[in-house]
């Protein structure tokens, strides 16, 4: 496979054809915030948090789905990008009902950490306070739509790794939501194996285990790399 040479933030890199900007950035500890991306799942480029600028291209591109190209000049941390990332997080905050003080993942939340990373001091947009539901019909897990950022990690892990495809996305705009089965209560979704993978990959307090209270839910996600490595490379090792 061909090797491509390009620069990121003024530094020269080379990578195999087909690699993404995000992959290269991660390998070299160049921080690019991500939300919908999770190593081991397919990339959907949905959250637009990982946006980068490529010289000669007016559009901002998601680093998680943009492949390296010969001679590419990439910027990952311009003022414009910082502004857009802050806006993205602010919009996510205003479109849901986030009350960190009483949330199961308080202090262990990817959305919270992103808010700190992008320096979200306050949300300029009016909070929409949408009416969202909570479904506790599953015997072990709960989904609280108030916290959902529609990253679709749950949809992908259930389909791509567990092979059960319980989740889907339904509706549009502010009514867009993830649904179980044919938009039936989670407890009635017969395809669910209760494996808990969706709960663990969920970056927010949307999916959680019954019995946990404020700030008690911590998500361990290293199982995903382990499973994917085992399947693709036949390597049964737990990476640190």
């Amino acid at each position: 496979m061909a090797v491509k040479t390009f620069t990121i933030d003024g530094q020269q890199f080379s990578a195999q054809e087909g690699e993404t900007i995000l992959q290269v950035a991660r390998e070299h500890n160049i921080p690019i915030p991500t939300l919908c991306f999770l190593e081991g799942l397919s990339e959907v480029g949905a959250c637009r948090l990982c946006l980068i600028q490529v010289e000669g291209n007016n559009k901002l591109l998601p680093a998680c789905t943009t492949k390296v190209e010969e001679g590419m000049v990439v910027h990952t941390n311009t003022e414009k990008l910082k502004k857009y990332r802050r806006m993205t997080i602010a919009l996510l905050a205003s479109e849901g009902n986030h009350v960190c003080a009483v949330c199961v993942v308080n202090n262990h939340c990817e959305l919270q950490n992103l808010a700190y990373e992008v320096g979200l001091v306050r949300v300029r947009y009016p909070y929409l306070f949408p009416k969202k539901e909570l479904d506790a019909t599953h015997k072990r897990f709960v989904i609280d739509h108030n916290r959902c950022v529609l990253c679709t990690r749950c949809v992908r892990v259930c389909d791509e790794v567990e092979g059960a495809h319980v989740w889907d996305v339904a509706g549009r705009g502010i009514d867009c939501k993830i649904v179980t089965g044919l938009d039936e209560p989670w407890g009635d979704a017969e395809t669910c194996t209760s494996c808990g993978k969706c709960v663990l990959v969920c970056p927010t307090g949307t999916l959680f285990e019954k019995g946990v209270t404020v700030a008690e839910m911590e998500k361990q996600q290293d199982f995903l790399k382990f499973l994917v490595n085992a399947r693709k490379k036949r390597e049964w090792v737990y990476e640190e």
Partner: peptide, 18 residues
């Protein structure tokens, strides 16, 4: 100064908004 999360985001006080 907005003093605390309720002043900053609405927080718990705003949970009644539904």
């Amino acid at each position: 100064i907005a003093f605390g999360d309720c002043a900053t985001t609405g927080n718990v006080t705003a949970m009644r908004n539904r």
